[in-house]
Amino acid sequence: MKYKQVNPMQKWQRLSGLLTLLVLIFLILPIVIIMPLSLSSGSFLSYPMPGFSMRWYEELLTNYKWTKALQNSAIIGISSAVLAMVIGLMAAIGINAMKKGAARAVVMGLFIAPLMTPLIIMAVSLFLFYSKLGLSGKMLGIIIAHAILGTPFVVVSVFAGLQKFDMTLMRAAKSLGASSWYAYRNVMFPILKPAVVSGLLFAFVTSFDEIIIVLFLAGPDHITLPIRLFEGIRDELTPVVISAAMVMVLISVGSMGLIEWVRRRSEAAKEA
């Protein structure tokens, strides 16, 4: 009798294990399955491939419209991430020092709001705003918009880091004669560095992947990689689209690996 009572749970566990496997296949297989197509020597995105070649990667790295897009994405991604980092780092330290209450909650909410705002609303509102400001069709406009998009990641990540930061260290530094700036620079920042770096990378990947805002704000000279990809998917679906996609996957997954590495290293340092 007792045996039979334990059985249902095992059955459920096996069933959920099987379903999990299916879901994982659903999540990952589509991405994996298209990857080899970037090495196809043919012009069509279908299996079986006629042969292997690097021609699509060659096209990606030599064709102006792709290289320009890659360059734009890199410039916008890096500048907006750095801007987001500066704003986010300052804001997080400031918010952490604010006394708890409505003001603090509102400020925190404001800095996190872009995460929850539909991108289309940000895109349209900035489109209208920039047209009055004379910022439309300028790269600076896109960088500003992406910086706003990236700031929440830095704020959240640094704020979480500050919750673990032992403020007595700052007092210790001061009591040993350190100036305020010296204490920030040589005590707080080194400890916060992993949090800042992961926020920075999140902001970069967000900008690197973002398409809606760029669609609305970019002039013809500011086509980014996602936009080229978007046009490629709609117009000419050739393997060069997949090779561009592979570059994006590589950069995103590379950043993720970097974040994980930074996290592990900081944890290891803490244990040591």
Partner: peptide, 8 residues
């Protein structure tokens, strides 16, 4: 992985 990559 980019939304666009997944859509494609």
């Amino acid at each position: 992985i980019s939304l666009l990559v997944r859509s494609s």
